[in-house]
Design a protein around this nucleic acid. Sequence first.
DNA 1: ATGGTTGACTTTCAA
Length: 260
Amino acid sequence: MKIATWNINGVKARIDTVLSWLEQSAPDIACLQEIKSVDENFPREAFEALGYNVETNGQKGFNGVAIFSRLPFDEVNRGLPGDDDDEQARFIEGVFSTSNGVLRVVSLYLPNGNPVDSDKFPYKLGWMDRLDAWARERLALEEPLVLAGDYNVIPMPGDCHDPAVWEGDALYRPESRGAFRRLANAGFTDALRAVTDAPETYTFWDYQAGAWQKNNGIRIDHLMLSPEAANRLESVDVEKHVRGWEKPSDHVPVVAQMAF
DNA sequence: ATGGTTGACTTTCAA
């Protein structure tokens, strides 16, 4: 089974690109972020025509996450618990039945957090605290769980082209990286780092200043696996070539092959 | 070079 995460930067602008990718990469489960669409306007029929079940948690203009799955959804949970006042659509969980038992998959879009002197940075850190608390509850189930998404966190210096330029940025601040490590320390495996220590394996290149041409990228899209999921990991592919397509997203898909 | 690009959407904001 192939499980993918991809920040598509707008489903309306990216629909043809996403359809082409689904046909070529053929994930069994695709976790998408930044759909930038409300649920009522999401072009679900185009994706259903390719054989996917579609569940979304959208909002107007910004954010929004989705899960496409060849397996039917047994259960769908929208929104990260822990703050009833949080109206940003950044979290959706799907529960599936596989031939090897239950599988839980989350598509998450973690807040960017910049600028760090605004309320956006504490919102990011608070969101990470809530994710940590939610994830620890799920770990107690001892089930395969994949936390897939755009974490907006550069975990290590080797995950960016030039660490010096990221000093002080919300994606690289010690608080952000520390919260990401706490999640890992709770018992989640960074899928890519489980299979390779290769530096300069990026998942995002800014549209500006020729970042793609200069390979000035960062690794911020991650698949975090519970022990039961990590034990079924076979390989991970960062589909870098997708960044070179016409009308690309600024992120590329990260795809895990898993034994389900 | 204090810039640069893209998307959603009114006018700038978010990234």
